[in-house]
């Protein structure tokens, strides 16, 4: 079985552990074994990134070196982590001085960065390493009569030259997975726009406004739910639907791609942790057809 080393990031294990569990279950079902990374640190996204280029490179660099030591590629579930690791890999691969400096720091624990490790976002593993054909074959209980909107996340798809996951202006991986699983993928205004998550630190109300706009645009296009591929986006798009000025009757379920695929692949709901979801996934699950 193929193996890949999971870099959890800060948020998933605490705020959305079901995403982690579902990923391990789904990838396992599709022939990829997820192994743990030990002794990791924060990738430095967003905060350290803003205060020092080298500190950022060092932190992401260590994670890359840890995987390199075990001869593993890295699987990232969070868009920001995926983006950080890839950007820093690009930086260290092309800047000899920076690479030397980081390796000096890493040498103290016997680690070294040479660039062998590849960074894979979950969508890349599904699209490239497993492939749509294999996934289609593995579908046991397709969906029917369900319209879903895909939200890719900014750090997952941009900057294209470095991350190379999907078309940055017109991404289709999640849409295709939705269709493979039997549901209908719905296109909507602002599909590639940010969820607003990164702005929470500086201005929560603006960030919420941005997230709510996204949900509204998806609903306007006829979507009954939203499928995500980044822990931060998932939490944000969920959270903005609760609050003082929101209408709970207009809520739509927000669900990570793996929790959406899982039931269709015949994986039990409790393995996927779906009961922990804050937005009710009933409308999605009720569209599941019986085993074919």
């Amino acid at each position: 079985m193929k193996e890949i080393m999971l870099y959890r990031g800060c948020t998933t294990p605490v705020r959305l552990p079901a995403y982690e569990a579902a990923t391990i279950a789904v990838l396992g079902k599709l022939g990829v074994k997820v192994v743990e990374m030990d002794d990791a640190n924060c990738c430095g996204a967003q905060y350290v990134e803003s205060v020092s280029r080298m500190a950022f490179a060092a932190m992401s660099g260590r994670i890359l070196a840890l995987a390199e030591k075990e001869s593993q590629d890295i699987l990232a579930l969070c868009g920001a982590c995926s983006g950080s690791l890839k950007i820093n890999k690009h930086f260290l691969d092309n800047d000899e001085k920076a690479r030397k400096e980081v390796n000096e720091l890493l040498s103290e624990e016997g680690l070294k960065y040479t660039g062998k490790t590849r960074v894979r976002h979950l969508l890349q593993v599904l699209n490239e390493d497993i492939g749509f054909e294999a996934i289609e074959k593995a579908i046991k209980k397709p969906y029917k009569g369900l319209k879903l909107a895909a939200h890719y996340g900014c750090h997952v798809t941009r900057p294209y030259e470095i991350v190379q996951v999907d078309d940055p202006e017109n991404p289709t991986i999640i849409d295709r997975l939705i269709e493979i699983a039997g549901a209908e993928a719905v296109d909507y205004v602002g599909k590639t726009r940010c969820c607003g998550g990164p702005l929470l630190a500086m201005d929560e109300s603006l960030a919420t406004h941005i997230g709510q706009d996204k949900i509204r645009d998806a609903i306007a296009a006829g979507a009954q739910g939203m499928v995500t591929a980044c822990v931060f986006c998932d939490i944000q798009l969920t959270q903005v639907q609760f609050g003082e000025d929101t209408d709970s009757s207009k809520m739509i379920p927000v669900i990570p791609i793996v929790q959406f695929l899982g039931p269709a692949l015949g994986i039990k709901e409790d393995v996927l942790g779906i009961e922990l979801n804050k937005t009710s996934p009933d409308i999605i699950l009720s569209a599941l057809q019986e085993a074919k």
Binding site: R8, P13, P17, A18, E20, A21, I24, E36, D38, D39, A40, N41, C42, V48, V51, S52, M54, A55, A58, M59, R62, L105, E108, E109, V271, G273, L276
Partner: peptide, 26 residues
């Protein structure tokens, strides 16, 4: 919650390195 999901509850984060980074750069 993690245990119920079959996940490792010990997250094993390393803080030695980040402290080094802080000292050197910040």
């Amino acid at each position: 919650e993690r245990e119920d999901l079959g996940l490792n509850p010990a997250l094993a984060w390393n803080d030695t390195f980040t402290k080094k980074v802080k000292k050197k750069y910040l």
